[in-house]
Write a protein that binds this DNA or RNA. Structure first.
Lengths: 169, 169
DNA sequence: CATATATGTCAACATTGCTGTCGTATCTTC
DNA sequence: GAAGATACGACAGCAATGTTGACATATATG
């Protein structure tokens, strides 16, 4: 490593350094989603359902448009998944209090329980990795990940220091 | 942050800290794959093709079984994607020199060119994020990501310091 | 009232995973 | 050399999740 001063602009990056980053993302994501996927399969749901349940739990009262902006899928794709979750009693819809065209989404008790089961797994994986890597590493992890995200969504993922309340964008 | 000493075992992790990690992985992966996906769509290929082309480029002469172990998909799934890549001249197969049941895979010139175009995009995104986050952050990023990966595959992603030659597992 | 916005819906299609089954070539072992 | 294991390929069918395109309805806004 040429230097260790953070903020340095002249980082010397070999092809191998960059490929390592690419591969870390591939393997980490593969394993991060593996176990929840298996749990979901047992109740006839998929990863897409997890995403919806996760973000509805994260931002209670979020509306469909905001969810679409986070997931970056078409409303038709979301509609199918969301419809199933509503029909099966995981998610409840309420008319928007100010704009009545909106559907504000919330987890039911059943939905909250599913979300806990699924996310608990990922929470544990993260916690284990954080502890194994150490607090200093966690900060670096966050900084790099933030910068991997498209600039327009970077603020959406609140940094721990600026600790914003979990509000929809 | 309670401490900054790496290797610390008593990291205090709030639910919010862990959710941030979960979300960073979601958003980063979403954006990391976005642009290559769009490029692939234009030539009638998908993300699965990118993965295959990437790892064949990374490990020239890799055989089917090794590729399956990396991708963690069934051979039937791989077969479809790999077959297309071979038929369309992106990948060449050679009989294994010692075990003739094996197919050793290699990129053709056309395949190497595709791999360059696709991966160049991700390489740039990584490089930009590394530079924005600083060299110290890069090290932390790697440590956390390594620990997110299933233990049995952790060695597969060589750490930069232990810099193993790119050899198939 | 006119227009824009938020959402839902129907239909058709592509990609990428899965299971199950069978076949062939080749290696290994007794 | 025969028997069994292994590496790979192929066919069939299915499910999840994404896409486009078109159209409908309710509500907000000017």
């Amino acid at each position: 490593m040429p230097e260790l001063r953070p903020g340095m602009q002249h980082l010397f990056l070999r092809d191998e350094d960059l490929r390592l980053g690419i591969e870390l993302l591939f393997y980490a994501y593969r394993d991060f989603t593996g176990e929840p996927d298996r749990m979901l399969a047992q109740i006839g749901l998929g990863r897409a359902h997890h995403r919806v349940v996760y973000f509805v739990g994260r931002y209670p009262g979020i509306n469909v448009g905001e969810l679409l902006a986070i997931l970056r899928i078409t409303k038709q794709s979301l509609s199918r998944v969301l419809g199933e979750l509503v029909r099966e009693g995981y998610i409840a819809q309420k008319q928007g209090p100010v704009d009545r065209r909106q559907r504000r989404l919330e987890l039911t008790e059943k939905g909250a329980e599913l979300e806990r089961r699924l996310t608990e797994n990922q929470r544990k994986r993260i916690a284990t990795a954080y502890r194994a890597a150490g607090a200093g590493a966690v900060d670096g992890f966050r900084r790099v990940m933030q910068n991997l995200i498209d600039e327009r969504d970077r603020a959406k993922v609140a940094d721990i220091d600026t600790a914003k309340p979990p509000k929809p964008p």
